[in-house]
Amino acid sequence: MSDITRSDVAHLARLARLAVTDDELDVFSGQLDAILDTVGRVSEIDDDVPPTSHVAPLTNVLRADEPEPSLDREAVLAGAPAAEEGRFRVPRILGEEP
């Protein structure tokens, strides 16, 4: 049924920002293939059935537009991998926003 190749796994890993190793490509392609064979059974069902995304019967749950306290910046930045000038420091950004 499904046929997940090494290059499919490599593509998915790239989309998901996972620097998978060569060995993992082998292991995962086999496992993902087996999993997708199993879960692919959902395609058996009728297309007419409406989808369910939320089970609780709720609508219009809204919050009043009233300010609440924010976090202490120094405490948050202390938990960051790197910070500078009150900001989070991150490696250089190569691509543009998609």
Partner: peptide, 27 residues
């Protein structure tokens, strides 16, 4: 120009000191 952000109670203001209007939700 709401008083707060779309999904949290942090202030929506232009030109504030960096990272002073942040909370668990918008972070």
């Amino acid at each position: 120009n709401t008083a707060t952000k779309m999904f949290c109670g942090c202030r929506n203001e232009f030109g504030a000191e960096p990272n002073t209007n942040i909370c668990p939700v918008c972070l």
